[in-house]
Design a protein around this nucleic acid. Sequence first.
DNA 1: ACGCCGTGTCAAGAAAAGTTGACATCTGCG
DNA 2: CGCAGATGTCAACTTTTCTTGACACGGCGT
Lengths: 86, 86
Amino acid sequence: MTKGSDPLRATVRNHIRSLRFAASEMTQQDLANRIGVSRQTLNAIEGEKYSPSLEVAFRIARVFGKPLEEVFTCQFEAAPPRKRPK
Amino acid sequence: MTKGSDPLRATVRNHIRSLRFAASEMTQQDLANRIGVSRQTLNAIEGEKYSPSLEVAFRIARVFGKPLEEVFTCQFEAAPPRKRPK
DNA sequence: ACGCCGTGTCAAGAAAAGTTGACATCTGCG
DNA sequence: CGCAGATGTCAACTTTTCTTGACACGGCGT
């Protein structure tokens, strides 16, 4: 991945933080435990430093009892903007 | 990931092959190009040698015009079976 | 003031995902 | 037959994801 050659750029977003608060103020540590990843990893995912593996994504969705696409969304933007499409 | 310590084991399955045939006999190479990954990578994913990144998963679903959960599914099994739960 | 908890972040390293290039097999077609 | 396309697979390598351990910072309760 991460090749300048392909037409569509994909960006993955997530609603983990709000879901976590909605779920009786669950802490990052708690969630991380339930998912089966480290606290730092969850922190990075939640903060969108990188996107998780599909498996981890499924696990997260499961904890919240929501379909994956309600936790993670993907936007496809056209041609890598020179400046940012106004 | 891949820790023996967590309670639920997750296995990811996919319907890429059938979708690919349904889509006018699209070849692995074609699909790989449209997704933006190599033919070998797609082959591995399709054959479930490993599960893709969330981003690639979204890209695949997009090509087929289906929601991600219709292309990839996740099963959670309890306690790592000694033999396979009858 | 002090400790504690939740969070953000860094570094170093292991593991998984993805890359290229090569080669084997199988099918279908001239 | 001979050849081309589609697929499966291997090896070596890069990049991304995930791990542990550490430390800093901002509340908040006592």
